[in-house]
Amino acid sequence: MEYVQARVATLHDFADPLPPAPTGHTAVVVPMTEREHGRQAADRVFRTLERLAPARVVVPLRAPAERVPRIREWLSTYDLTLDLLWCDGPRVGDLLADAGLDGDRGKGRDVWLGLGPATEEEFVVVHDADTTTYDESFVRRLLFPLTRGYAFSKGYYARVEDDRLYGRLFRLFYVPLVRALLDGTPHPYLRYLDAFRYALAGEFAATADTARRIQAPRKWGLEVGTLGDAFDVAGFDATAQVDLGTYEHDHRAVDGSAGLSEMSRSVGETLLRSVVERGVDVDFDTLPERYRATATTLVDQYALDAGFNGMEFDREHEREQVKRYAAAVQEPTSPDDRLPAWADAPVAAEAVTDAATADVEAVVDATQAEAPGRDDD
């Protein structure tokens, strides 16, 4: 246990706190894909939210049409004021296309869709649905700083499970990349990025005004993109990070379309674009080598830490991951895919909600009409 304050206010789990929080004025955004449907972790999340009784729960859902009816039926079993936003419906797609917002789909786009209606409440909390250790302290802890004048709150926790160190994308990519950049220039934005104990955590809370000013990247760069906007809106003085204690959820493979290597490209693109946009002079010719050197040193430090705690640690495997991630350390060249802040969006949040609701009703009606044994005479 430690009690060190970072450059942003850092709240520690000294005594398993369950602080008071304005849950009755809060919307909780829980992005889901079809894989979370019916799983024990997701059930735990929604059962816990029942006890918290937030003003509303918004579930942006990415799933094929044939899975939507069963997922809606499952979500209806929870005693919650819950808005199901099917992100892949035709009406939502047409609405975004007409507003010039069509493009790649991903977690960032889903969360952005959920933030629109969520900001009708005073406070917004965002977290995933795959947390096996979820309890009501998560939402309360994230909200607590917002009742004390802070505008943005980020969760953190140690990714230690089964006698192993996880959080590989953060440990082996984000941290060494930010440190390599910071060694080159002590820019305030880089110091801000370096202040977070787990910058790639998906759990955050914000005032509605702050949430309306988030320009969400469409894919895996969401967490880094959120920090960039938080720096602009809240800065050091109005940002807090909160210890969420024990935290366990699904692990990803390094390879594959949703693997860590693919995620590193999205995270790296978003991070480096945000750095350049804020006036940091980056030497991209030397940055990959500086990143690898910093990451290699960290691998040795992690190996020592794991050995100290009697944990398993595959040093060579971690070094190999560093080599894979180094491919993502390059000057951003792809088009900026960020969605506009809701404060400036060319589409109304209510219109998105209405379109998503109509899409869900249409696919449910179609499923019922095709059900065996239906007599339409």
Score class of each variant (00 low, 15 high):
Gly106Ser: 05
Val267Leu: 13
Asp344Gln: 09
Ala53Arg: 02
Val280Tyr: 07
Ser264Asp: 08
Glu331Val: 03
Pro117Ile: 08
His12Trp: 12
Glu289Asn: 09
Ala303Gly: 11
Ala356Ile: 06
Trp342His: 01
Val224Arg: 07
Ala303Lys: 05
Ala211Pro: 06
Glu136Tyr: 08
Leu193Pro: 00
Pro188Asp: 03
Glu203Ala: 15
Asp104Thr: 14
Phe231Pro: 12
Tyr198Trp: 04
Pro31Tyr: 14
Leu18Gln: 13
Gly373Ile: 09
Gly100Cys: 14
Thr297Val: 15
Ala258Lys: 11
Pro217Ile: 13
Ala129Ile: 09
Thr23Leu: 15
Arg7Gln: 09
Gly202Met: 03
Glu66Met: 03
Asp337Phe: 01
Ile71Met: 10
Glu318Phe: 13
Leu115Cys: 04
Arg212Ala: 07
Asp250Cys: 06
Gly89Gln: 10
Asp255Cys: 08
Val224Leu: 06
Leu271His: 11
Val254Thr: 04
Pro117Lys: 13
Arg141Tyr: 01
Val45Gly: 04
Asp344Trp: 09
Glu66Phe: 06
Asp83Ser: 15
Trp220Thr: 03
Phe144Val: 00
Tyr198Ser: 02
Val58Tyr: 05
Thr297Asn: 07
Tyr247Leu: 03
Pro64Gln: 04
Asp314Val: 01
Glu136Thr: 08
Phe196Lys: 02
Leu193Trp: 05
Glu66Gln: 07
Ala343Val: 13
Leu52Val: 05
Leu190Gly: 02
Arg212Trp: 00
Val322Trp: 01
